[in-house]
Design a protein around this nucleic acid. Structure first.
Lengths: 244, 244
DNA sequence: CGGCAGTTTGATGTTACTCAATTTAAGTGG
DNA sequence: CCACTTAAATTGAGTAACATCAAACTGCCG
C-alpha cells in the first residue's frame, strides 16, 4: 500500500531536504520563524524544532498540513490540570494527522521528542492533487483508515487491558514502525522515549511504568534504557501485548 | 453543518421507510435475509434487526455502507477472551462508521441495542455522489472529522480519568445526541442501556458502574433506571465529566 | 408460583497511585 | 579530572481505586 509521501511529493523532496539533490525549498530554523514567513507557491517549506519544543497547539488554525521528515515527535491531548494523553508517536514520513487534510483547525497538540524537521504542505495543493490523482486520493484515504483503526485499538487497549498488556501493546505497535525507518540489527530499536512519555501514552504513572519495565527486564523479555529497546523474547511479548 | 443523510439521500428516504411517502425500496426482516438478497440498482435497501442481534462482525466484507434509521445500536471491538470495548453508541442518522465509505472490510462489530432498522447504501453509489457533489464530499469529510475527534476524546477519557469522570463524560457525550433525535422534556432522556453496556464503554465492571450510579443518585445528580436518564444537576455533571 | 436477567450490596483482594527517599546518569564549570 | 547540579529512574511503604466473588434483591414473564 503506497504511503502518502511516496505519491504526493516530487521524489527529490521525499525526506530530509539536506540529503536530496534537486531540492527546492526553504528550511526555517524554528516553528515560529516558519509561521512568520510568507508562502511562496511551488516551493517546499520545512522547519526544524528542538527536542521538547511545541510545534502545534490545540485549536490552532493552519493552511498547511504537516509531515514529520526526521526525528520523533508525538501528538497529544492536553487537559487543563496538566495531565495529557499521548495519542500517537510520530516517525519520519508520518502526517501529524491524516484528517488534517480536510480541516484546518487542529484538535490536538504536537511536541518534538528529539530534534526534528517538519515539512509543511499547503492544504490547498494537497487537495488539488487529491482531486486530480486517484492514487493520491487513495493514499490519503488509506492513511485515514489506518488512523481510525489505530484509534480503535488504542481505545480497546486503554479500556480493557492491564498495565503490562498496555505497555507491551505500545512497544509492539511501535516496533514495526520504527523498523520501517531504521535498520534494525539484533532486535535493537532506537527508542528515545522517557518513561513519562510511555506513562502518558498508556494512562499510567511513570513510577508504575518503571516497575513494569523492571519486571520485563527481570523476566529477560526486553530491556529499555539509554534510548534503545532490546527485545529478547518476542513471542512472549506478543503473547502479552497482542489484541486478539 | 449538514449531516450525511440530509445530503446523500432523496428526502423521501431519510428516515424509517414506513413513515415516508414516495418510498421506493425493500425492507428485509433480518440481517441474514438482507445479505442473501440481490442488489437492485436504484432501490433503497433496508433491514430490521431484533434487540441484541449482531449486525456486523469484524473482518466482514461488504459492498454496502450502513446507516442506522431507527433504534439504538453500538459499535464495538471484541477480544477473544470475551471482553469487549464499546466504541460508540449509534443513534438514528449515524453511519456505522464514516470511514466505511472508503474501505469494505469492517474492523469492528455492531450489535443492536433495541429493535433497529438499518439502511444499506451501495458504497459505489455513495462514492459516485461524493465525486460528483462537493456538498456530499464535505458531509462525509465532516463525519470523518467528527469520528476522529470523538476517538481522541475517548482515548483521553479512558487513559486519564477516573470512573466517575468517565461515566459522566459518557452521559454528557450522549445527551445532546439523544436530544437531536428525541423531544426532551424536563431533562428526561430515553436511555436503553444496561449497566453492562456502560461498563464495556468506559472500561469498568458492571458492579462498579452500579456503585457510581448509586452515588450519583444519592447526590441528587441524576437517576438512570428503567431506560430513562433523568438529570437533576447538569452543571455539576458537567463539572465532573467535561474534558477541559 | 418459579425462573430469569439485571441490579444492588457486602466482604475481600489486587492493581495501580501517591509520596518520599535513594540511586543513576548526564552534563557543566572549575 | 573532579565537585556540583539537574533530570530521570528506581525502590519502599502506605493507600485509594477498582476488581472479584458471592449473596440477596427487584421486576418481569411464563
Amino acid at each position: 500500500m503506497a504511503k502518502f509521501f511516496e505519491i504526493a511529493l516530487p521524489s527529490t523532496c521525499v525526506t530530509c531536504p539536506h540529503r536530496e539533490t534537486g531540492f527546492c525549498g526553504t528550511l526555517f530554523e524554528s516553528p515560529s520563524e516558519y509561521s512568520r514567513a510568507d508562502r511562496q507557491p511551488g516551493w517546499q517549506r520545512f522547519f526544524a524544532a528542538r527536542s521538547g519544543e511545541q510545534i502545534v497547539t490545540r485549536n490552532q488554525v493552519s493552511e498547511d498540513v504537516f509531515m514529520l521528515c526526521t526525528g520523533w515527535a508525538f501528538r497529544y491531548y492536553q487537559l487543563s490540570d496538566g495531565r495529557r494523553q499521548i495519542l500517537k508517536f510520530l516517525l519520519p514520513g508520518d502526517l501529524f494527522s491524516s484528517i488534517a487534510v480536510f480541516e484546518k483547525t487542529f484538535h490536538f497538540s504536537v511536541k518534538a521528542l528529539t530534534e526534528v524537521q517538519v515539512n509543511a504542505f499547503a492544504r490547498s495543493e494537497i487537495r488539488a492533487k487529491c482531486a486530480a490523482d486517484p492514487d493520491v486520493q487513495s493514499a490519503i484515504a488509506n492513511s485515514c483508515i489506518a488512523d481510525a483503526h489505530d484509534a480503535t485499538e488504542l481505545v480497546t487497549a486503554l479500556g480493557q487491558r492491564s498495565a503490562e498488556e498496555r505497555i507491551a501493546y505500545l512497544l509492539l505497535h511501535l516496533m514495526p514502525r520504527v523498523a520501517a525507518v531504521n535498520v534494525i540489527r539484533e532486535q535493537r530499536y532506537p527508542f528515545p522515549l522517557r518513561q513519562q512519555h510511555i506513562a502518558d501514552a498508556v494512562g499510567l504513572t511513570p513510577v508504575h511504568v518503571s516497575r513494569v519495565l523492571s519486571l520485563f527486564r527481570d523476566r529477560r523479555l526486553l530491556d529499555l534504557s539509554d534510548g534503545v529497546l532490546k527485545v529478547f523474547n518476542l513471542p512472549e511479548l506478543e503473547r502479552i501485548g497482542s489484541l486478539k
